[in-house]
């Protein structure tokens, strides 16, 4: 390829990819401001020029006539995600620290096998997992409850937290632990005072993953809750009927994605400020 053509090619590819990623967002954005007529009027994209925008879709998701109220599902999702992420981070980093610092040997099972065991739970198709989960929750009387959903979500997020944190802890010199112990810290103190403060970047990444996976879970909530508890993805999907109200669906979808977008922007800012980078070495 001739050198002068290369930048043209490079930017064309980048532009195409950007369209591919941003396209659905744009589609959802315009559609959320349409009404039934505008949707049926064929492919239109530009408000005011091609169609008259209305706020019907948005009104519908906040209890408008013929719509739903997303506030309660939103709160349910938030509670489940935050609680499950927090528990997963606490348990996960403790487990990961142990796996990173101590040698375990149970028969032929070693540290790397245990880490793989954690990750393997994410390899299994959710359909396989949901049945035992169902019976477990039924046995515990936790079907269709927030608590039940939190427990199941922890089971889903824990592997991610462990996996991310093991890798991160392996990157922190062991001498830091040793020094803390020599300085008078027992094992737990060492973890809390010397290791965790140096693990903010890892914890942030793990928290991001947990939040995204927790927030976006539809399948388990769909199978394990029914009437009492409904999460946001469930609520959005429930809108889908034989004649889908595209405007309401779009508004609900955007509303559902919004927290993650805000989170991503915040984390990106935080990382680029250098608050986290360079914390270790």
């Amino acid at each position: 390829m001739r050198p002068r053509l290369y930048p043209v090619f490079k930017y064309t590819v980048i532009a195409l990819w950007a369209c591919f990623v941003a396209g659905p967002f744009f589609w959802a954005m315009t559609t959320s401001f349409k009404d039934a007529n505008a949707v049926q009027g064929g492919a239109t994209y530009l408000p005011w020029i091609q169609y008259q925008p209305t706020a019907t879709g948005w009104r519908n998701i906040f209890g408008g006539a013929g719509g739903i109220d997303v506030i309660q599902p939103f709160l349910n999702s938030a509670i489940v995600t935050i609680a499950a992420s927090a528990i997963s981070l606490v348990l996960g980093s403790l487990a990961a620290y142990a796996l990173s610092r101590y040698r375990f040997k149970i028969g032929f099972i070693k540290n790397s096998d245990i880490v793989f065991f954690f990750v393997s739970q994410r390899i299994m198709p959710p359909v396989v997992l949901v049945i035992p989960f169902f019976y477990l929750l039924q046995w515990a009387g936790l079907l269709d409850t927030i608590a039940g959903l939190v427990i199941v979500t922890v089971a889903l997020l824990l592997p991610i937290a462990v996996w991310v944190m093991v890798d991160f802890f392996n990157g922190i010199p062991r001498e830091i632990d040793e020094m803390a112990m020599l300085d008078g810290c027992g094992p737990l103190q060492t973890f809390v005072r010397a290791i965790l403060p140096n693990s903010l970047p890892g914890l942030t990444v793990a928290a991001m993953f947990c939040a995204v996976f927790g927030w976006n879970d539809f399948f388990f909530a769909f199978r394990l809750t029914f009437t009492e508890v409904q999460t946001l993805p469930q609520a959005v999907v429930a809108l889908n009927s034989s004649i889908p109200p595209w405007w309401t669906l779009s508004a609900a979808a955007l509303f559902g994605v919004a927290p993650l977008v805000l989170l991503a922007i915040w984390v990106e800012r935080y990382l680029s400020k250098g608050n986290l980078s360079g914390a270790v070495r």
Partner: peptide
């Protein structure tokens, strides 16, 4: 006696300090 009760301090070759402090 566990490490944390040994009344011992150590200085490492690789300049080990607490990075966050």
């Amino acid at each position: 006696t566990p490490v944390w009760r040994r009344d011992t301090a150590m200085v490492y070759q690789q300049f080990i300090n607490y990075p966050h402090l």
